[in-house]
Design a protein around this nucleic acid. Structure first.
Lengths: 135, 135, 135, 135
DNA sequence: GTGGTCTAGACCACT
DNA sequence: GTGGTCTAGACCACG
């Protein structure tokens, strides 16, 4: 069974590289429960065809997620894995904090105060929790 | 008055483009009160020399900040401006929310829950408030 | 006599091709004395079924071992052979030395010194000697 | 200064993927002292041209070494780094031991005993120590 | 059918 | 000049 339940969208006009858009979509599907551990992902070529991008772009995204510990690869293809040892490495958390600091600086400069920023995080957390089963 | 009290550091070994490191440092100086409205920035030539980077790099950073509404350029050079109309444009805020969403997805995937994430924001907010006057 | 005392395990989630996992397991059984010269191997069909893999996979593994000089094929099926002339061909030894060199380079790069590496070889040699008769 | 002192050779007819041959050559240059920490590597395109391979092949090799902790990448290009925290991760050592076990099984099957195998390791270690300064 | 490797060539971002 | 991204298309290994 291939993961036909997962649908991803990418914007070819975005400044964000296509393969990064894809990794984010896959991670989001994991976070909001659309994708479960062990679930198979669409094959590289199929997904590339569906998204209208090149095979190598999907390949790069999948392999990045393997390196990060989100996916695993075997002889049959890629599937959701979530290797906690890899995922919860301190290196990542330092990187995330640095990114959060920069994001907060930008928010403050652009007139968003801490209270508003905190509200945003809670609204987004809520959105991410609501599993979109309407698909 | 030249802004001699502002000191910036860039890491040439970072993956982050030099001009972005510089814009972040300048914004951070504004946020934590090191830099005040009207204060002049070091000249492009001087700062480039101090940081050991190309003049084009500093120029690019300054001009980006002018476009963003943080700096203004006049006959004497660049100075802190903070044009609220530009800064608080809804476009920027949408962009910031999108970035926050992605950052939160990455945090959750990497084992950071909402509570921890919120704690991080408060710790960072505190750090940003403490004006480092010891310079 | 069918080799019912040989039990092999393969990991479908491994990066290593299934047929290579199988050839290694068979060679290991020979090295640690679990399998003796003349002993028959499970039929392709049976082993494929036991391991939950395709018949082609077992077939490929068996034929590779025939080419290498470990097995021989006759009317009844495959059995342990150990053709020294084939096995001790200089070609193989050159290949093995090349692999050892690369493995040592990787070990040294990853902080393992020669003394530790040599200790590893002795520990592994010991493990391989202890015939697991408890099966 | 680009690392013009480093010379690599790859065999397009080898079974080993070109990018892996290249990573091995670079690691070997580090192990035997030909390459030192901080030294810049040839640019992706220059090296690709020198070796007669595609840019992407060199790129893949370099990026693998960055992930492994051997190289570092900055705005100017790639250079030798040797991040011990990454390099000496236990995950790698387990992998190396597994590879060593398989290599030893193959050696024993092919008529090499433990004594000979240990001699090989010492001969190779000696070869790797002798810095080839004759270049 | 799956993914992996490699090539050739284009366009973009950064310094 | 440096690397990064993306495309199009070919050939191979594995199951």
């Amino acid at each position: 069974m291939r993961g036909d339940e997962m649908f991803f969208e990418i914007d070819p006009n975005s400044q964000v590289p296509l393969y990064l858009q894809l990794t984010q979509q896959i991670k989001q599907a994991v976070v909001n429960g659309q994708a479960e551990i062990g679930q198979a992902l669409p094959s590289v070529r199929i997904l590339a065809s569906d998204l209208g991008v090149n095979m190598h772009t999907v390949n790069k995204a999948y392999n990045m997620l393997v390196d990060e510990g989100v996916l695993r690869k075997n002889q049959q293809g890629y599937s959701i894995y979530l290797n906690k040892i890899q995922l919860e490495s301190p290196m990542y958390q330092l990187e995330l904090k640095e990114q959060l600091k920069n994001l907060m600086i930008n928010s403050f400069i652009h007139g968003v105060n801490l209270k508003e920023f905190t509200q945003w995080t809670h609204v987004i957390a809520q959105e991410l929790k609501e599993t979109p089963k309407e698909r």
